[in-house]
Write a protein that binds this DNA or RNA. Structure first.
Lengths: 345, 345
DNA sequence: TTGTAAGCGTTATCAA
DNA sequence: TTGATAACGCTTACAA
């Protein structure tokens, strides 16, 4: 811990005086616009350090129209997807020397209001996990005319917005391949609601994978639900009610549902993973340790840090390029293999 | 959704011209420094609206040294305590017409670095959930000389910092009273580690409540652990290994532990809540629906929105008062009674 | 490459 | 109460 000294009211003029140069030179050296690392540069930096100088962003922003801040709009934080991402973005933004201005909006209207707010504070760029994309995307496209905008995760295609995320198709492919390799020949699907685009994309990808990976499924084995242990339990109970015939594996949207599914299997006397394997689409703490009797769930982990790094790099780099085609950065999810799909040796 | 018009480059001078007054008057009217709501005021406001004017905060900040932004420093977001609080603070800050600048730091050193960063952006105030308080509090006290600082949740006493939170003693009292009223005469305690002050405060409060509420406990029934289903299960199994003698209730620090405890009870053939009652100190989604077989856990819910509102009110109000004694606002937690402590009728 | 000086858009001061 | 004007601290033409 340091000496607790805080920036006093020292301005660029003081630094200039101490270093024996003009304010313009100080500005150029400290902002990096003067690359040379000669005696003069060192003198300026030394003076700045000695005086504990830090730039007044208000003055800087007023003159240069750059505020050194990035707006981040997320739907909510009580959701591990969004909180993980926010937690990954904060250090990335700080690493880029910027400030993170946070806005939370769970509807398109709220998100638009928050965006207007951060815009009125002249943020340099906007990173957003959009909701109700059909409403918010047109607005985002108008925003993108002013500042760089990066969309995260959402599967909405826009030829005017940058995008960083993962492919739901890849997620499903990784899981289906793994279940097949692990020995399962049939699979049930308990997905999140199909209200949103991501849910639909996942379900479509599931069907596509059936053919490819040699797994089979049945209409009675396909269900959609809100995430909860209870509904996972009830749905799985229903699936298992036909005693002559049960799936050799289950794909669940989330950890809570998986816990319910597991309990239903246990209650029906089916052993996991020997007789039935369980895989989860979205990783969470529950998949790793949220169960008991030493069960844990194989799941797909999203590369939060890389998504965050890509997003920040994109908005930082984009400051320059005036005319451009939108970037799409698709990152690879990672399968975390746990006890629910493989027999421990 | 509105017409997607974004603030153009209209300045106070344009508004002044349209309204037929000076820029000074426009500034006074729009900033609320001129209270009167006469024809002149209306004319200015109409002109501002017509031109879609929004103040340039950089210019405003440069002149007035107020940036209309508040810094929030939290330890992390993958923890429901902190993410709930952040989610509650964001709307409160926005409601106050300010921007929220977020910093995440899980150590005192990281928090200090983030604080310096937001300070260099001249935030008007700081709200912080401190970690390693013995290290960070002295630094916070120096910060408090410059801008209002409100500490949240932490139990650290400082005669220089404002504080908003809840009393751990009250939490324990509410739970012990409830268990006693529900018919339990003895209780086990599975707390979080005693490394931090909060854990120690809770445990001390637990002991105090034993006498007051007429509950009894035993050394063998008291354990400390990291939150996980597995450790809850193992600890409870150990407690129940003496078959002649078991507690009529259990207080757990969190939902994961409670799930493990419940499983151990079920495995031992003890029915919840009839033979043994389970209560949780920190509410989470798991307490409400994270279990199966229709069990849910009685727990204590913190008044997030009120904590957030108090914190924001405090830093906003404090702008004025130059000499002051620190405020301490202690809010009441609420007991959420669920199936783990009362027999359903 | 460096210094000089003119702004950036607002608020504060001061005089009317 | 209002208006004219200076000042906030920085960046950037432009001149040297």
């Amino acid at each position: 811990m340091s000496q607790h000294s805080l920036g006093d009211d020292v301005s660029i003029a003081n630094v200039a005086a101490v270093a024996g140069v003009s304010t313009a030179t100080v500005s150029r050296v400290l902002s990096g616009r003067r690359r040379k690392d000669d005696d003069l540069s060192r003198r300026v930096r030394a003076a700045a350090k000695q005086l504990n100088y830090s730039v007044n962003y208000a003055a800087s922003a007023l003159r240069s129209a750059k505020t050194n801040s990035i707006g981040l709009i997320v739907p909510e934080l009580n959701n591990s997807l969004y909180s993980s991402l926010t937690q990954a973005i904060e250090p990335a933004v700080n690493h880029a020397g910027k400030q993170l201005i946070l806005g939370i909006g769970s509807t398109a209207a709220e998100q638009e209001q928050r965006i207007r707010l951060v815009l009125s504070h002249r943020v340099d760029a906007l990173i957003i996990i959009p909701v109700e994309t059909e409403f918010i995307v047109p607005f985002l496209e108008t925003v993108a005319k002013q500042i760089p905008v990066v969309q995260l995760l959402s599967q909405t295609y826009s030829n005017k917005l940058d995008w960083v995320g993962i492919s739901e198709t890849t997620v499903m492919q990784i899981i289906a391949d793994h279940l097949s390799t692990a020995g399962a020949r049939s699979v049930a699907y308990i997905g999140s609601s199909t209200d949103d685009l991501d849910g639909m994309t996942l379900f479509t990808a599931f069907h596509m994978q059936m053919t490819v990976s040699g797994l089979s499924t049945y209409t009675e084995w396909i269900h959609f639900t809100q995430e909860s242990v209870d509904s996972g339990y009830r749905i799985m109970q229903k699936i298992l009610s036909d005693h002559s015939f049960y799936p050799e594996s289950v794909i669940c949207s989330d950890g809570l549902t998986a816990v319910g599914v597991y309990r239903a299997c246990a209650a029906a006397g089916l052993s996991v993973p020997e007789e039935i394997k369980i895989a989860v689409l979205h990783d969470s703490a529950l998949c790793e340790n949220g169960t008991f009797e030493s069960v844990s769930f194989t799941s797909v982990q999203l590369p939060w840090d890389r998504i965050a790094a890509e997003a920040v790099t994109l908005v930082a780099a984009e400051q320059e390029r005036k005319s451009w085609l939108p970037s799409r950065r698709e990152l690879e999810p990672e399968l975390i293999i746990r006890k629910s799909t493989v027999v421990s040796s």
